[in-house]
Design a protein around this nucleic acid. Structure first.
Length: 280
DNA sequence: TTGTGGCCCGACG
DNA sequence: CGTCGGGCCACAA
């Protein structure tokens, strides 16, 4: 079992015990690991203290992130980082695929795709001549479904297996990411509609550790009533994590849905919150 | 706390 | 065109 799988189990356990408490039923039991093991697990996985782990998961903490973001002109703000190495602060140059490229299904292009490890489970990473074009988490053993989805998205391309390149990209994307100014941004190339591309690009301005609500993101792309449409757009993001759709949460502080599971979304939020410069 | 109506966009006829 | 459903949201009781 990977560390992420153990973390996911802890999150599910917390959900379960919260539900049990509210139903006034029996105290939770079952496969809860010993407290000391959890402590080691959390610090090994995210280098944070267990009490911070819990803190970053609360509704109140999320609301505080939203307040701080909203207080300055609706733009999402960094919660003053106490730590120069912010996780996930990768520069991304996001291009939308042209209509011609969409029509042809990527005819004439080559895509190299393979599996990479990440703090959130293994993922399928793909790169074309135009840049990274796919990042999807896999929960199944085989990953057949993920390959199928990639193939359906780009039926016309030559698709090659390249785990070594995928691994390199994975390390760059999830590795310790001190932002190196001289390093050029990572090229990315996404298939999507005009509206989706607008939403995704705006999302790139939401820094790690910050959170934005669906409604505010809608306002930020100039359509304040389109919160629901924004939900649809972020849900169809082909570049999981790179385009940080996990930083979009509900107005009331709950995490909201996630294409790869709400547990994974919350794990990402916690992982990125390390060193955030405030407590609620 | 749950329900309900309405917002917008994209998918499918 | 017309309909329908969503990773939502505000508003009711």
């Amino acid at each position: 079992m990977t560390d992420y799988e153990r973390i996911a189990r802890v999150l599910r356990h917390l959900d379960g015990s919260r539900r049990a408490r509210s139903e006034a039923g029996a105290p939770p039991q079952g496969d809860r690991p010993a407290a000391l093991d959890i402590q080691k697990l959390i610090s090994g996985w995210a280098a944070i203290a267990p009490e911070d782990f819990l803190q970053y998961l609360t509704i109140e903490y999320s609301k505080e992130c939203l307040r701080r973001g909203a207080s300055s002109l609706g733009a999402a703000q960094v919660p003053a980082p106490s730590d120069p190495i912010r996780r996930g602060s990768l520069l991304l140059d996001l291009q939308a695929a042209s209509t011609a490229e969409l029509r042809s299904g990527g005819e004439g292009q080559t895509i190299r795709a393979g599996w990479a490890a990440s703090p959130f489970g293994r993922c399928l990473v793909a790169e074309s001549d135009r840049g990274v074009c796919w990042l999807a988490f896999a929960d199944s053993e085989t990953g057949r479904a993920e390959w199928g989805a990639l193939r359906r998205a780009w039926p016309g391309v030559r698709l090659l297996r390249d785990d070594s390149r995928a691994g390199e990209l994975g390390r760059r994307i999830f590795g310790p990411s001190r932002r190196i100014p001289s390093r050029p941004p990572l090229q990315a190339w996404a298939r999507g509609t005009e509206f989706q591309a607008r939403v995704w690009r705006r999302l790139l301005d939401v820094p790690p550790g910050a959170r934005i609500s669906y409604g505010h993101l809608a306002a930020a792309v100039g359509q304040p009533e389109a919160a629901r449409a924004v939900g649809g757009a972020v849900g169809r993001n082909p570049l999981a994590y790179l385009v940080p759709c996990h930083r979009v949460v509900c107005e009331d502080g709950r995490a909201g849905g996630y294409r790869w599971g709400t547990v994974r979304k919350r794990a990402m939020l916690v992982w990125e919150s390390r060193g955030a410069g405030f407590r609620s």
